Amino acid sequence: MPRVLMLKDEDPRARVETIDEERLPERAVTVDIDFSDLNYKDALAVTGKGKIVRDYPFVPGIDFAGTVRSCEGGRFARGDKVILTGWGVGERYWGGFAETMRVDEEWLVACPEALSTREAMLFGTAGLSAMLSVMRLQEAGLARGARVVVTGATGGVGSWAVKMLAHYGYEVHAVTGKPNQEAWLKELGASEVLGRHEFEGEPRPLEKSRWAGAIDTVGDNVLANVLAQMEYHGLVAAVGLAGGSELPTTVMPFILRGVSLLGIDSAMQPLARRREAWQHIAELPEAVRHAMHYEELGMEMIAERAEAMINGDIHGRLLLDPHID
């Protein structure tokens, strides 16, 4: 009988329970979960501070990596290593904060041979989103060596973006509200660390040109100020809204400087694109794959660390091993 983190519309909201496997969803693939991770969306779901979960009881967790136990279709065999991210899992469908879960076949990607399931979840949705952002910027023509700014740089997506961009030869400028993490961000590859306060003021239509590229995880005034500072034909990948979903800007960056705003979605990416991104991740040198700061936790710690994440007290990644206390 698997243990799960069960959310209920009562107090306490989150509790670890052992359930009969008959209570798992009736879906085609049964996966024994090796690792999951705690993302910002998970933190909103667990704490109830975001309208992520609407039906209870519910098992959250927007991604996981594990081993196939059984598959009713022919795509996976027993023992295959697989990764799941997105598709509404952990939001509409029971997710990865469990020892075992049943999911649809088309939601799964084979874990590349060069990547362990543990490594896969050190990246998780955050690392996948960062890689998709980098890929989109490169495909849009961002030249190696260009100046790229990354906002929300101590978060999961932001920190992986800093590391990946530096690896690919870009000049990375990291924006954060945590000045005490400057040394760590420079270890990841940032050439400069800027305070978030520099980007939170009332946006002007245009500012002095500073950046050829950008990866924004924050939204709202921060994204608007980044757009105003882009060089001619600058490229901005928008991948998050930790600071809000508004965008208080004008069309001037787009029609006077030819700036492109590129939306990045990881949840509903087609299978081929997911495979491509995970292969790029697997091809990163071992030193890059193992560079991330992380904290490993069991399910009993999720609620506490979710609160800390909402409060901005986390940097790097939170790796979940569902089999430890």
Rank of each mutant, 00 (worst) to 15 (best):
P2M: 02
V4M: 09
L7E: 09
R13A: 03
A14R: 04
A14S: 10
V16Y: 00
E17P: 01
T18G: 01
E22K: 12
E22Q: 07
L24I: 05
V29G: 04
V31L: 01
I33N: 05
I33G: 03
S36N: 08
D37F: 09
K41A: 13
G48M: 03
K51V: 00
V53I: 12
V53T: 05
Y56G: 06
Y56R: 04
F58Q: 04
G61H: 06
I62D: 03
I62N: 10
F64V: 05
F64G: 07
A65E: 07
G66L: 08
V68G: 04
R75Y: 08
W87F: 14
G88S: 11
Y93G: 00
G95P: 06
E99K: 01
T100I: 10
R102C: 15
V103W: 09
V103M: 09
E106L: 03
L108F: 03
A110C: 04
S116D: 06
A120Y: 07
M121F: 06
L122T: 12
G127Q: 02
L128D: 01
S129A: 14
S133H: 08
S133N: 07
S133R: 07
L142V: 08
A143F: 01
R144L: 04
A146Y: 02
A146G: 11
V148K: 01
V150G: 03
T151M: 00
G152Q: 05
V157E: 02
G158P: 06
S159E: 08
S159T: 07
A161P: 14
V162W: 14
M164C: 12
A166K: 13
V172E: 14
N180Y: 14
E182A: 15
K186A: 12
G189Q: 12
S191W: 02
S191H: 10
G195L: 07
E200N: 12
G201Y: 09
P203E: 11
P205C: 14
E207W: 13
K208C: 14
W211I: 06
A212V: 04
I215A: 13
I215R: 12
N221W: 03
L223D: 07
L223W: 08
N225L: 08
N225Y: 09
Q229D: 01
E231K: 12
Y232R: 11
Y232N: 09
G234E: 03
V236Y: 02
V239F: 03
G244F: 11
S245K: 10
L247I: 13
T249G: 14
P253G: 08
P253K: 05
L256N: 12
R257H: 11
G258Q: 03
V259A: 11
S260D: 15
I264L: 11
I264K: 10
Q269E: 15
E276M: 13
E276C: 10
Q279V: 03
A287L: 00
A291N: 10
H293F: 10
E296G: 00
L297I: 03
E304N: 15
R305G: 05
I310Q: 09
R317L: 02
L320V: 15
D321R: 06
